[in-house]
Design a protein around this nucleic acid. Structure first.
Lengths: 237, 237
DNA sequence: CAGTGGTCTAGACCACTGG
DNA sequence: CAGTGGTCTAGACCACTGG
């Protein structure tokens, strides 16, 4: 059973997405929502605070909660922007393609984050994926999901082609925080080929560790970004 | 006057920093803190939730709040890590040096984020700074603070050599969220000279917009990172 | 089983925005 | 000035962890 504040959050989110509440407009006040849905104000605030965290609204003391301008397309936990102006360019369609079927790997001692003995013993499922914007590849991603926790070896196992949505819907696993390391590096020949750039051209290499609501269960990712056409963005704190 | 939850937060933070509560240990439970400081549980939870957001503790249903392992050194809102293993390397001393005195600039139409008419009219104070780890430069940063809001034209105006701390202490301005764009690019001759690398070598270029608690007041930053020796890290969501 | 953090109620007072 | 979100109280029940 979902919690009250989650139901209210999803309901408001849908109204924002459908345009019932438009960017720049003020949401009903916390008092109004409280009365309308017969909830305590605390519960209403919980729902609104989640919408703030997800970037759908901003709150202003004395004024109200204002619907944010259209959210940018997500690319993993990143978002993308047309590069020419860095900001404000229209985004295109984002596609994710599996380079090959998910496969099992043992992870070695040279893995980019330190692993617990349990993780090492389990091994991982590796996903190799390319993300494209308007059909030009911008990300080459290797994701490592500890095996035995989830059986994900077929592309058809994935809901909406999304790993995180699949984990949420099928296994009740949610992503909390993520930590990442950023490195600018020269593209290897293989990477250059994927992006259609010259070997040695600058690419962004990101190492990431996702924390989940399941203790001891982390998801790791190593990905390369071609930032020539599209920059890679995120919001934090 | 500070709020109750902020006082409790600062008090607990200091106890963690001093080692009264050590990494891996469990904090007093919310009930105990409630009784000890004579606060409502809601207030205690507000304090703890802030400590979670700042990375000092993690909370676990049924177990309690556990003090996190030693926090990494901050580098702006980023942190640094020794690169050789990407993770786990000891961090060195971080120094920030002004390249020149802060100076006023008009910002043009080619600025990397769109500006409001008010911002354009005001102009900005520009800070040029280099951050070094163990005396090797890792960041070359250009920060733009809208003029007229704050008079910051002398290095000696800065508290602990930190812009954000200065804004907090002297002007009651706090940073909320930040959005950033990441681009991998080749170093120009000037940038290469600062980092002691070859022109054209890959560097990370970050564009950032900081939101503050003062409406309409944003701080902008454009910085270059040499990620050869140290990677650049952050935590989000 | 006792203890923990997560959700929730039904109130209250406050500082702030805008007319 | 009425209305807003931010802080705060004093309770309650729940699911979860660990012995």
């Amino acid at each position: 059973m979902q919690h009250q504040y989650q139901k209210l959050k999803d309901l408001l989110k849908k109204k924002i997405q459908k345009g019932t509440y438009k960017p720049g407009e003020v949401l009903p006040s916390e008092h109004e929502l409280r009365a309308q849905y017969k909830l305590a104000r605390f519960t209403v605030r919980q729902a609104l605070d989640e919408l703030v965290k997800e970037g759908y609204i901003t709150k202003h003391k004395g004024k109200g909660s204002i619907v944010s301008e259209r959210k940018r397309k997500a690319l993993g936990l990143f978002s993308i922007k047309g590069f020419s102006a860095v900001v404000g360019e229209a985004e295109g369609s984002v596609k994710t393609v599996f380079l090959k079927k998910p496969y099992k790997v043992k992870w070695g001692d040279d893995f980019f984050y330190p692993l617990s003995p349990e993780e090492k013993q389990k091994g991982a499922i590796c996903l190799e994926r390319i993300r494209s914007v308007n059909d030009s590849p911008v990300m080459l991603e290797y994701t490592y999901v500890p095996a035995n926790e989830v059986p994900l070896l077929k592309e058809s196992d994935f809901v909406h082609n999304s790993l995180f949505e699949t984990l949420h819907v099928k296994f009740n696993i949610d992503i909390g925080t993520a930590e990442q390391e950023l490195v600018a590096t020269g593209a290897t020949r293989e990477i250059a080929k994927v992006f259609g750039i010259k070997a040695g051209a600058p690419v962004l290499h990101v190492y990431r560790k996702y924390h989940t609501n399941r203790p001891g269960f982390f998801i790791y990712s190593s990905f390369y970004c071609h930032t020539g056409k599209y920059s890679i963005g995120n919001v934090f704190q």
